[in-house]
Design a protein around this nucleic acid. Sequence first.
DNA 1: TAATTAATGGAAAACATTTTCCTAAATAAG
DNA 2: CTTATTTAGGAAAATGTTTTCCATTAATTA
Lengths: 343, 343
Amino acid sequence: MANKEITIKDVAKLAECSPTTVSRVINNSDHPVSQDTAEKVQAAIEKLNFSPNRIAQGLKSDKSNIIGVIVHDICDSYFAQMVKGIEEFISGHEYIVNIYNTSRSVEKELHAVNMLKANRADAIVFAGGALMDKEYEQKMYTIIEQLKSQNTVLLGVTPHPFEIKNINLGNQKAAAMITEYLIEQGHQKIAFVDGPQNLYTSYLRRKGLKESLNKYNLNLNDELIFSGDFSFEGGRKAALELLKKIDEITAVLAANDATALGLIWELNNQGIKVPEDISVVGIDDLPEAKYSYPPLTTVSLPIYQLGTNIGKYLLKSLTNDQSSDLESVEMKLIKRKSVKKII
Amino acid sequence: MANKEITIKDVAKLAECSPTTVSRVINNSDHPVSQDTAEKVQAAIEKLNFSPNRIAQGLKSDKSNIIGVIVHDICDSYFAQMVKGIEEFISGHEYIVNIYNTSRSVEKELHAVNMLKANRADAIVFAGGALMDKEYEQKMYTIIEQLKSQNTVLLGVTPHPFEIKNINLGNQKAAAMITEYLIEQGHQKIAFVDGPQNLYTSYLRRKGLKESLNKYNLNLNDELIFSGDFSFEGGRKAALELLKKIDEITAVLAANDATALGLIWELNNQGIKVPEDISVVGIDDLPEAKYSYPPLTTVSLPIYQLGTNIGKYLLKSLTNDQSSDLESVEMKLIKRKSVKKII
DNA sequence: TAATTAATGGAAAACATTTTCCTAAATAAG
DNA sequence: CTTATTTAGGAAAATGTTTTCCATTAATTA
């Protein structure tokens, strides 16, 4: 920045008044200022193309206007939509959304949290730290310790209660919902293609499946849990494994839609017909889900809307003193063509 | 922030020295400070869990450490990858990446630019403003005027030279590349499914097609340009239109992969075989592209890598005085199964 | 008319840093 | 032994705002 910054003083000089007065018209304060001078100040501001230095304002007010958003993978449709929702609301209200992509590395998560701390972020949305793993959890404590002192909302991060607002993302409920649908359609031999190892989200979805099964006196056979990683590729590989036990299975729940899509693709590729030979369902309702062969039956999590709600919630708790609650979003069973009713 | 902030003064008091000295060890300045006191200061910092207030630092140094990234749609795989690339590099170097999702609205673009200005962003990546539209361009001037004074890189934004670093994203070249491939395979009657109306990117891809055609004394028949919007849905609709002239067409270039995927889907749906009845190609090489029926022939733009390169470039020009050039990335023709060799 | 009160404005302190300048001691050079 | 130089440290100014306090004038009330 070679060129000198234009400050409130320059405006004051041009408008023939004090910086104090300029500040007053900028923030239209309670302290009265005459119509006349106000106009002069406005004119000066326009003429100089002045905009108050947020950094200086921040120093004075002890606010950074930064909202940190920490996610695993911004290219994952799930997080992308969420970030978009948050941004929509936050940027419109003069806040900065500062994203971090952690690729599920604790080190990066810690780094993000430290940066956010150094920058005195006003609030943090933390969608990371979801590994149920001893070593990882140890490190998480350091992170949480930092987060505690801040205005933070955790996104279904961990089973441990941390005295931090932890939003239930409805993972378990979604899995339960679609499982019950499967059972209603007569399926009893249901397989599961898991998400990433030790990821809390995977755990919850698996749990939703298991408990629904139990409710109907059915069991989730451990032999019928196939590993996956939330990706299309992972779904394909799982399909190959699953093929070996195809006779023991009438339906399969994939931990997410990407996996389900991969499953369907490879199943087709191997000459297995969906849903005639096997039913496949997912969770998320990706935009692509309706264009698979056959269109995927799944449950929609309105993540974008959750994002805007989080934005709203954060903003309220930053401006108002008493924080209202986060508006919840409704998930929905999306029946398409990948499930066959049996018997 | 009810709880009082820990400042350099607190550290100084605990370490029994002056704030000046603390500052010196924090920034390990040239000014010497004895081993002994340095250690005391470090100890105090640890004990108080102190991290210097970036806002105050920013005020003093006239740096915000903010890098603004303005994109059309963060959920679009193209931009998501780009943002991820930028973040990867930038966050690792103590910079904040501040994203804006504009949904192609000039008003939002202007808002973003104004916020970035108010926050004294150190650099801006502007991937917006790409509409070739009179009214729009008028407003763009206001935006550009603001951007000019900042360290900005434009991402293939507009045909007009604005004295701002404007990166050629290779849109035209990509289109040319795949067109030539089509011609090599014997295709002469090539249709085009356009991108969003007036979008510069669409224009460039169309131009790449047109000029390659001309090179071989072929013409792009205006009747064979179908409208689209870069989406799967758009591709589907275009397929329906395209069907009416199927006899005049042997191949179709979609403005992007999403469109091509939609095309293929609907073509299949209508009983038209790809590539037997018609060849389809796209541009971008989305992850999904290899899983369509048939797998899509396309050209890959390594957007993620472009992102990291932009990060690198920005960082260099912020730290070093003389700015080195942006490393370019290489696009590649990805031959899969959606093109048939004819004659 | 005198005494309040309201309207308008400014000076200076404060926010958490860094930087410039200064001082004092210790060491090196003459 | 005197004079430079190096080493180590601090006081205070500066960054661009906002806020607290004070001052002046005008308007209202007693």
